[in-house]
Design a protein around this nucleic acid. Sequence first.
DNA 1: ACCACCCGAACGAACGTTCGAACGAAAGCC
DNA 2: GGCTTTCGTTCGAACGTTCGTTCGGGTGGT
Lengths: 205, 205
Amino acid sequence: MLALDTTQKRTPGFDSKRLHLLKSAARVFAEVGFDKASMRRIAAETEVSLAGIYHYVDSKEELLYWIQYHTFDSLLKGLSNNLEGVSDPRLRLEAAVRNHVRHFGENMHELKVCAREVETLEGEAYDAVHERRRSYFEAVHRIVMELQPDQGAFLDSWLATANLFGMINWFYQWYDAGRSRVSLDDLAAQQTSLFLDGYIARGNE
Amino acid sequence: MLALDTTQKRTPGFDSKRLHLLKSAARVFAEVGFDKASMRRIAAETEVSLAGIYHYVDSKEELLYWIQYHTFDSLLKGLSNNLEGVSDPRLRLEAAVRNHVRHFGENMHELKVCAREVETLEGEAYDAVHERRRSYFEAVHRIVMELQPDQGAFLDSWLATANLFGMINWFYQWYDAGRSRVSLDDLAAQQTSLFLDGYIARGNE
DNA sequence: ACCACCCGAACGAACGTTCGAACGAAAGCC
DNA sequence: GGCTTTCGTTCGAACGTTCGTTCGGGTGGT
């Protein structure tokens, strides 16, 4: 469950079919939620039989597990890349928010599933995802702490980071990629400046 | 479905038993989610038989409907009360956030259900809840617009309000009433000042 | 005798998962 | 090169469970 089995022999194309399956599953989970999503529907959208799914995956929970694990892992790797060579704390924060928001734009379904289904997994699978999620949170928390290296209390910076995640995670509830008049990059910039300088200061720049 | 039936004759205590049922349902929905929550478990926690539930309510969806409708209605009414006599825009916003956060403290389960299960209802029930939710959002949006009566663009104020709701709705994900070192009123104050003045300005006051 | 209230038992549907058989390409053997 | 065996892959059909809801009847107050 905790690692993709690579010991067994596979036909070429096995991995890409599994990825296609995960993609379909993410779309269905995002649309109707994990519990209401049936394996029959995921099978239909992947154009595989119901039983065929279980050749690529052991259970429904494993589908969710891989979607979540892979998403947080990508967020973390993207963050590292986007921070490289950036030293100004404000620019680092903006890079972090932009990384998050862009990743949302490209993987809307997956991020929605991560945000909404945080407490669905149990046991080892939950722990493994939780560790990735925690690493990601702490990486952003570190950036927030750098903003006020001297005077910021730890609790304040932790709360501020939690609220920052509130902003950038909540927007899957209202953002509609096709209909919105704001681009994702503009949105990231607005959220960064809202977090850094607040709503009141925004008109004075 | 859309209005509690008050025409039928009821034994005294009927209403309070129904409220007790809604309270149990909210607790179960909050713990395991609407889909995983079974009527059998709700029945057990309410100390009523499974069939007995259907004497007070027509369906499982109706349980969710009343929890959500009543919660948004209470939020809206509490907001009106807390704004009475307050005219300074900053204080009005703080009152709004405090109302929201306090309401959370007193009705944790219900707010969690409202935040997580926004898209679960369908048809008329969804529309009715949606209208309350929209009214509440617009009431807060009006307060945000008052903060910058001259220069604020409508889109900006709308985005800012959406992000404010992100902060104050997301915190059900991490806040643990029993374990936290921050009181709900302190949290409301921090969130208000974060939204108004940003994270950077907070150390300079 | 009526009626609000309560419940054990069952119904039909939907679910995640498994079983056993089929197909086709590569591997082993003469 | 032909023939057989192996095994990854696919699927229709079914299994066992759980679910929301209903049915028919009971109980106690008025």
